[in-house]
């Protein structure tokens, strides 16, 4: 008998005669599908000590340029499928493109990575990447020490259930809540271990600046 058969037989024997269990009651807030509170999203991302800018759509290029300039980032990883207009204010940027695949050492040496995302979660201040357009394979947003991420307003959902409903489990997913951190020293949170030590987020609201 294989171990597979042994384990399955043990499992069967262990629960034989136990009462069946019904479907789980879900007496908690269901996904509501409605518009999420962008201010809450920004506030919750900031709570993790990430830098957040909320700007109108048409100011994203300027915000990207300003962020990279402030960081002094010149050699930046640009995943395939990133909207070209986001880089419109940066004609001189040295783009590191993952084709052919960049070596881990090259990613490690980059000044940063600029990415899009698949979803944002307002209640928890979380950004989810799914390796889709403008995000690339997972290493691209892991090895550079600086991660600049643009989140479109329509991508932000209210809660974790909303996000789970929207995501595709077949894709590799990375949920990011603030910069790399640890609670391993005296159970107090400190930012900055192996992942990007700086996370900067640009939230793009629809429309143009009115004031």
């Amino acid at each position: 008998m294989s171990s597979r058969d042994v384990i399955l037989a043990r499992v069967r024997a262990a629960v034989a005669g136990s009462a069946p269990v019904g479907e789980a009651a879900r007496a908690y807030r269901a996904p509501d599908g409605g518009a999420a509170d962008l201010e809450l999203f920004a506030e919750r991302v900031r709570d993790y000590r990430a830098v957040v800018h909320v700007v109108p759509d048409d100011e994203v290029p300027a915000a990207v340029a300003a962020a990279l300039a402030a960081r002094g980032a010149r050699r930046v990883v640009v995943p395939a499928g990133l909207p070209e207009e986001w880089l419109a204010a940066l004609p001189g940027l040295e783009r590191l493109v993952d084709d052919p695949p960049l070596a881990a050492s090259a990613l490690d040496a980059a000044d940063g990575v600029l990415s899009a995302c698949a979803a944002g979660v307002a209640e928890t201040g979380t950004i989810v990447l799914d390796a889709g357009p403008g995000q690339g394979r997972r290493a691209l947003t892991l090895l550079p020490d600086y991660h600049l991420c643009v989140v479109r307003a329509a991508q932000v959902v209210a809660s974790v259930p909303d996000a789970v409903a929207r995501l595709d489990p077949v894709r590799p997913l990375t949920w990011i809540s603030g910069p790399s951190a640890t609670s391993d020293i005296e159970l107090n949170r400190v930012e900055g271990v192996h992942g990007p030590r700086t996370l900067e987020v640009i939230v793009a609201e629809p429309g143009t600046r009115t004031s």
Partner: peptide, 22 residues
């Protein structure tokens, strides 16, 4: 949707842990 709310808040006392890989 249940466990991603239960676990981080119970364990590190955060709304969400910094990274979750799937």
């Amino acid at each position: 949707e249940v466990f991603l709310q239960l676990l981080p808040r119970s364990s590190t006392g955060e709304r969400m842990n910094p990274y979750t890989s799937m």
